[in-house]
């Protein structure tokens, strides 16, 4: 089922490559990956079979939007909409156009989110998935517009909305236009809420800044993927501000659960099934009070 998307050896080698990791990668990297957490060498085939979760230590590797879709929705059910919307460079910000082109080439996506209609074990939904590889999943005009279009499609079709986030925050290169996408998307969520439509937010590693402080935190049900960093201000900024060390597990999914900020923490393997059950409960419930 993941053959098309997940099977690409290209992806596993492309994902979350930090400078350190780049050095770690040997010519054999098409065959195996070193776990970021336990440092075990894992064969890519095995890693892919395990949804890019380390079989040794359960570390969740970051995954692309396309792969996320593949493991979340029913095969061949994705009907993308909102294509043909592209970031421009309204501030003429240094290197922005070049960065957009690089991101586009690297991810095969037009922007840091793809939206569409899909089915999850037969339940019809509107879904949006972000990709951290596209400029750190930052929210500029296009991400803001696509999130809003997804919300509007949900209202129009009365299909539940699922947004899966991974984001570094507002896109600096679009300045205040990017910041205002927080207001735009939150206002749209208000309309969705008023329309009485289910909205599930799934926060994955990492979700921070303006995305956390807008639509991602406004869902009826918030799911955090195991181990995900979920924050308003990033740990480095906080460390610099307060000048003391941060508590163990600070800003991780489990920490947010403990502090009442998310409904549940799920491992990657549990997400589709849990979504299905939530959708089932809501579908049964709706007609009772109409």
């Amino acid at each position: 089922m993941f053959k098309d998307l997940f099977g690409k050896p290209k992806y596993v080698t492309v994902r979350t490559r930090t400078k350190q990791e780049k050095e770690d990668i040997s010519p054999d990297s098409r065959l195996w990956t070193k776990c970021n957490s336990c440092n075990q060498i894992i064969f890519n085939k095995k890693l892919v079979e395990n949804l890019l979760v380390c079989p040794e230590c359960n570390y969740h590797f970051r995954i692309s939007a396309k792969d996320r879709l593949a493991i979340t929705i029913d095969e061949d059910s994705f009907q993308e909409f909102g294509q043909e919307i592209f970031s421009t460079d309204p501030l003429e910000f240094p290197d922005y156009k070049e960065k957009l082109a690089t991101a586009r080439a690297r991810t095969g996506l037009d922007e840091a989110i793809i939206i569409g209609e899909a089915a999850i074990n037969g339940y019809q939904v509107v879904i949006g998935v972000m990709d951290f590889n596209f400029m750190g999943g930052s929210m500029g005009s296009v991400v803001g517009e696509k999130v809003t279009l997804a919300i509007e499609r949900s209202i129009e079709t009365r299909k539940p909305l699922i947004l899966i986030t991974t984001a570094g925050g507002a896109r600096m290169q679009e300045g205040m236009i990017a910041l205002m996408q927080m207001a735009k998307t939150s206002a749209a969520v208000k309309r969705l809420d008023d329309a009485g439509i289910l909205y599930i937010s799934i926060m994955t590693d990492p979700t921070s800044g303006g995305v956390t402080a807008s639509f991602a935190s406004l869902a009826d049900i918030i799911i955090a993927e195991k181990g995900a960093l979920i924050a308003f201000a990033g740990p480095r900024v906080i460390q610099q501000t307060i000048n003391t060390s941060l508590p163990e597990g600070f800003q991780r999914a489990e920490f947010l659960l403990e502090h009442g900020m998310v409904d549940m923490v799920l491992s990657r393997h549990e997400i589709k099934d849990t979504l299905t059950r939530i959708l089932k409960i809501h579908q049964v419930g709706v007609s009772n009070y109409d």
Binding site: M182, A183, S186, A187, V189, K190, D193, D194, T212, A213, S214, F215, A216, S217, L218, A231, F232, A233, V237, I238, T241, I242, L246, P247, F250, Q251, H259, G260, M261
Partner: peptide, 24 residues
């Protein structure tokens, strides 16, 4: 404020909620 308590008590949620409510 970027601090531990602010994060623990949901700085992001507080801001998001305001945006949502202020819009209407």
């Amino acid at each position: 404020y970027p601090g531990i308590g602010a994060e623990e008590r949901g700085q992001a949620e507080a801001i998001a909620k305001n945006l949502m409510e202020m819009s209407a």
